[in-house]
Amino acid sequence: MNDLILAIGRNNIILRLSQDSGVKLSELAELLGLSVTPAASTVCADVLADTGNDSVCSDESPIFTTGPLAVFFNRKEQNFRLNFLYPLPELKLVHKIYIYQVMITFGVLSAMLRGIKLIPVHGALLDNGSEALLLCGESGVGKSTTARRWRESGGQCYADDLILIDYSGKEFFAHPLPTWSICKESLKGQFYPFNRKLPLKSVFGLSRGEVREYIAPIPEDDFLAQLYRSAFFHILAIGGCLPEKEQKRLGNTVWSGVENLAAKFPPCGLFAHLKGDLKSTLGGYL
């Protein structure tokens, strides 16, 4: 059970665990009319035949809903079904983005289970054009605000939701993936460098500074816990449906990536404050 298979129907996409893989996500994106090339170009998924099944059967449990999309898990068949409010040919860009987001998530999970050294981190990636700094933290802690402040200070930040960290070589590289909330408005006029690959220079846990902005060491366990949680953020619901043995393997895979990341970057926190000068705070780190 190494891969995930996608099957596209009129109102459904079925994703099933399988040994095989074939069509690249970029090709699937093209099929859905998305003229983008995902950063995870090595991630594969197979497209099966149309299914056309709309009804929820007794073996299915809802996993999550996002916008016009509901994801069900079929315990008997061991597959996932994505159901849409609209037939696929009538889907608007906004709906396709949801599909794209789910595809990326499934694709990354599939790649990780096949041994490709990727970690999908929920965070913000601050970028100076040649190197990047990864910020991890709980939802609502200020990742998007820090990203905006970084842009206002002249920096670049294309991702404040999902970043793929590639640790297949000696260096860690970060692939920014789009901030979906912005994508849902339109892809036109937006520049998303899907093929951008930046060496990672620093990794910080993000917290709020009470009276000022600063960077300080944090306990290693807190850093690891934050990284592990961030790395599971986008795959926890789907990963929880895998057979127990595969769940264990996924946990070990993610943990191995997190340990690698923590071995390279010392446990540090950015304690952000709106009155701080972010550019100068991050001076030597990016």
Partner: peptide
Amino acid sequence: MKLNPFAVMRKSPDGSGTLFDPSSNKALKL
């Protein structure tokens, strides 16, 4: 009894340990 398959235990040289669980951002000392 079944452990959470995503929970990871990191053992220290002194025999104590720390549990990490992706649904929490806090580590649990053992």
